[in-house]
Design a protein around this nucleic acid. Structure first.
Ligand code: MN
Ligand code: MN
Ligand code: MN
Ligand code: MN
Lengths: 134, 134
DNA sequence: CATTTCATGTAGCGTATGCTACACTTTCGA
DNA sequence: TCGAAAGTGTAGCATACGCTACATGAAATG
């Protein structure tokens, strides 16, 4: 996928990385709460089977985002940490923005989870400005 | 897919219908500009091969959103029209909102294409209120 | 009206993300 | 320490959406 000539292609590449973003963010979350992140932890959090988690972790490992030994815990590579932090910033900023806009928390939380992956840096900056001038 | 117990499950079901939403909206668009909507028209607009369009149209037909005879044009069922109009409303409102927020048009257009599918009615209403009080 | 061109369909492949069933490893507790 | 429980891996299947290559139907053109 290299052209990106229209908005639909853009959306498709977004989809390809949405999962990665959610997972590295979740891994960082879990590692902030406990000493290790296991397949089981991710399966519970994402509400998918451990099989799905295992396969996605393989892909993330092949992309250099996570490290994992068989039967071992999951950790983030520097690249993975970077993605996690960028994702987290977007996630939190978008959520704060929606709440400031008056969206009920339940809806805001749900909307954010999907919207976050499609919010450009430009839009993010506008949301920051809105929050600052509110 | 029936539980929807957390935000991730919600996001996944969103993905399942994103394509449908984009397609019915595109079909309605095309039918507003010319007398018939063909596979080729959709392939051009979505920038995918005609094969992909054909298969997606089969799915949409099986879901009762579109009607199509072999080698014939595509039309929307009443359900499809309904989805198209709801999608269009969300699409346009979100775009207008982002523009009002100060997002450059190019970014706003691109972001909207992905974000639209994850914006709840609650959030939409808040955006409407923002636009009214601006 | 025959032929070329264009549009559409189908076969077959690839990736990503779901699942269940079963095998294997690790951990825990009696 | 040894068997059960819990966790993880793998096989194999499903759906969705990409693609190329090739076959076939429809339309245009001389
Ligand atoms: Mn997130
Ligand atoms: Mn998310
Ligand atoms: Mn749309
Ligand atoms: Mn869209």
């Amino acid at each position: 996928m290299s052209s990106l000539s229209n908005q639909f292609a853009k959306t498709r590449t977004d989809h390809a990385s949405e999962t990665a973003e959610d997972y590295v963010e979740a891994i960082e979350d879990i590692l902030g709460q406990q000493d290790s992140c296991r397949v089981k932890d991710l399966a519970q959090r994402m509400e998918v089977s451990h099989v799905t988690v295992t396969r996605i972790l393989q892909r993330l490992a092949s992309e250099g985002l996570v490290t994992k030994e068989p039967y071992g815990p999951v950790s983030l590579t520097p690249t993975g940490k970077q993605m996690a932090q960028a994702s987290r910033r977007r996630h939190e900023l978008l959520l704060e923005f929606l709440l400031a806009l008056g969206v009920p928390e339940t809806d805001a939380i749900r909307d954010t989870e999907g919207m976050e992956h499609h919010v450009s840096e430009a839009t993010l900056r506008c949301m920051e400005t809105f929050l600052a001038n509110r």
